[in-house]
Design a binder for these strands. Sequence first.
DNA 1: CTGAAAGCGCTTACAG
DNA 2: CTGAAAGCGCTTACAG
Lengths: 334, 334
Amino acid sequence: MPVNIYDVAKKAGLSVVTVSRVLNNSSTVRDYNRQKVLKAMEELDYKPNAAARSLAKGDTGMIGLILPTIDDPFMSQVLFAVERAAREKGMFLVTAFAPGCEEPGYANPVSLFRENRVDGILILSPVKNEEYILELKKNGFPFVLLDQHHSAVQAPSVTVDNFYGGYQATARLIAAGFKRIAHISGSDIYESSAQRLEGYKQALRDHGLEIAEELIASGNFTIAGGYEALAGWIERGQLPEAVFAADDNTAFGVIDAARKFRISIPAELSVIGYDDHPFGSMLHPALSTVRQPTPELGKQGVELLLNVLSGKVKRAVTITLKPEVVLRDTTPAK
Amino acid sequence: MPVNIYDVAKKAGLSVVTVSRVLNNSSTVRDYNRQKVLKAMEELDYKPNAAARSLAKGDTGMIGLILPTIDDPFMSQVLFAVERAAREKGMFLVTAFAPGCEEPGYANPVSLFRENRVDGILILSPVKNEEYILELKKNGFPFVLLDQHHSAVQAPSVTVDNFYGGYQATARLIAAGFKRIAHISGSDIYESSAQRLEGYKQALRDHGLEIAEELIASGNFTIAGGYEALAGWIERGQLPEAVFAADDNTAFGVIDAARKFRISIPAELSVIGYDDHPFGSMLHPALSTVRQPTPELGKQGVELLLNVLSGKVKRAVTITLKPEVVLRDTTPAK
DNA sequence: CTGAAAGCGCTTACAG
DNA sequence: CTGAAAGCGCTTACAG
């Protein structure tokens, strides 16, 4: 039942080599013969066998994406962008989750590359220097890091400038005239959190504002974290004028707490989040935020990986994308 | 550099057949020899080549998941569950998006199966009778439908009982003493929407309540849809006592609108959503909802597909999962 | 319990 | 521009 390349060759009255050539768009095929082959394939409803091609050629036409979780629009947006970019390049996407240390019994997706199931791997937001990354490196397996800044690993990567994002968000708040600007950071295991915090601090310094440790809270990138941080400040009588939250979840928690404590936004408190969560623009008040270039991140990641695979890129280049501040209703209308 | 099965055989002083046997956990290998092979593999850091295995065995060890989008926690939760279940069964997951008619230029993920890249496919929430599903069926390619009810396609599937969910949600509202219970439905292209609506109607009927057409709005599964539906009722002086929203996004929109119009929840208006969106339990008021068994959906889907692949399941069985009402703070404390 | 041989469906030099 | 031959790295009957 399954028709193979010999069936096509026979039907077309040519050799399998020629059929293989039209399959691979080789230019050295007489157009007349190409048509015959195409016609035979059509009539036989022939589809090449991917495994046989892989075995013969040594590549798979697939790339892998390893990500920590998917419980966040940022992750899923990148996944979507990656899949799209991969498909546009004719590659399929194998997705594997690697929750990391947080979940012990969960095997690392090593066999994904150790068995040559994919040609290369994209690793999104590795939570720390996972040992499998080191292993990839040691084995010379092609991979690209997405959204990470662990200087410890030298590898091709495309990242978003989190320092810049943190700096810009804070600068906007300063420009609006605020002095008491708080920050709620994310999880320590993500480098991005530390960098947004640094951007916040630097913006304060550059504008001659003091860094008040009591206005820096830890929020763990969660709604609850944002809620508790604001509640804490309120209870201690330290309500800031504005808060830059390390992500939108945190910002939603801040808004939720503000509502609870009857603090009006943005009249009494301004808020800027990070990520541009879809809900941010749909709920009231619409959340001001720092938009991550997720489609670009996915696209550039795939392109970089393909360039690594083709040998065009040999060194550990880093492509840095800029996020963009989007001001909506949780900051003063200027 | 790449070590193959012959290298292992030589090192172990045995034939490749024996190596292959230990690779496939064949029981007919003398334990002493098995150890020798294992040791050789270890020392050589041997990893079997997936393409060669696929070609020889005729299967790939991969399954595909086709989903319309990923911009919804329901989708991503199912994706996560599917990946997890697949990995537990030793399979890898190829993910492909098929936005369907909504996005023309986007190629159908046909080559995923036409080139035998995967052994079988899981199709999540097909928006309608996509032609590729018909093609799969015609070709006898193994697939399982997740979360769909298109009676037009006879195929193995695992679904969630949306009628039941709609019925239960409405019944809870009725039990709380409400008479004017509204419903905001989802998108017509999803069968689930129609079924939740039917459940709502049936619950009303069963309890002797009238179905008021003016209390049935269309919300498109969006925050804006929920917002506008409630705003419409308010403006027309038709505020219901309670609303059953077709999903949590819609419910969030209702809550948002209620806040805007200063309608207190649940004192003046009760709300039940659908899906158990992670935000539902984290924001205030905590959203009452109908929880979908997403982990189970993914797990059962993978298992059913594997049973189809092994020939254990031949007919178009349907596994139906029950959703569960979760009452929180947007409905009266009983 | 073990192995020689053939085969899975392609592609890649190498000739012509 | 076209094709015969070898090879990619495994597994599967078939013998023994």
